[in-house]
């Protein structure tokens, strides 16, 4: 764990050329970053997407992402390799997320599985635009919805995937607002039961 050591910021390699937009950075595991800004710009999108997939809302995802970088960047040696930096950021993200749930709901709702991430995302700097561990989330959501009875599936689709308000959903389904609330609540509970039988860490079946 060399990169845990609080090292003085030494003379790093010069950046060399023009700063590139984040999407165009190409880095592989063995390489190192030019400076902390390169570390930040190369990883912020990934960490944010990961956090968003774990908390489902922007304010918390932004706060937690900021916490990860504020915690992680100071003790990071610039000479740590890309792979080391990523592993360290992910480990920090896992700790930060766990603390967030302890603080807010008193129990761990979601967690970051480092091994699963390593399996799912072998190439850092890949241009996929998909955060580690979130690549399968849409497919998982689809699978989950498909397993639900029609009415439950519809209400969750409209509200979660298509951003319908309760009123719009009520109009679409021909229900009262109160009925939509109850239906949505039951649908979530039912989906949660299905989800328990098919935990995220498990490999997709079929």
């Amino acid at each position: 764990m060399r990169y845990w050591k609080s090292a003085r910021r030494g003379t790093a390699e010069p950046a060399g050329d023009e700063p590139e937009p984040r999407a165009r950075l190409h880095l592989v595991h063995g390489e190192t970053y030019a400076n902390w800004e390169a570390i930040y710009l190369h990883n912020v999108d990934r960490i944010y997407r990961l956090m968003f997939s774990k908390v489902g809302n922007r304010p918390d995802a932004e706060d937690l992402t900021a916490e990860v970088f504020l915690t992680a960047l100071r003790p990071l040696r610039v000479s740590a390799t890309v792979g080391e930096v990523r592993a360290y950021l992910l480990a920090t993200a896992r700790t930060v997320l766990a603390a967030h749930w302890r603080r807010t709901l008193g129990r761990e709702i979601t967690s970051i599985d480092l091994e699963l991430l390593a399996d799912n995302d072998p190439a850092p700097g890949a241009e996929s635009g998909v955060a580690p561990g979130t690549g399968g989330s849409e497919r998982r959501a689809e699978r989950l919805l498909a397993a639900l009875p029609e009415r439950y599936r519809r209400v969750l689709e409209l509200r979660f995937l298509h951003s319908y308000t309760i009123k719009q959903t009520a109009a679409e389904l021909g229900l009262s607002v109160g009925n939509v609330k109850v239906l949505q609540h039951r649908a979530l509970r039912r989906a949660a039961e299905l989800d328990r039988d098919d935990p995220p860490a498990q490999a997709p079946q079929g």
Partner: peptide
């Protein structure tokens, strides 16, 4: 303070919300 059943429901809610197209990118 969430109980077990709440936690399960929230996990699903977060998962579904995160699957909303175009919502995962940082500002």
């Amino acid at each position: 303070p969430a109980d077990d059943a709440d936690a399960d429901a929230l996990r699903v809610a977060i998962e579904l919300r995160a699957a909303r197209p175009g919502s995962g990118a940082p500002r």
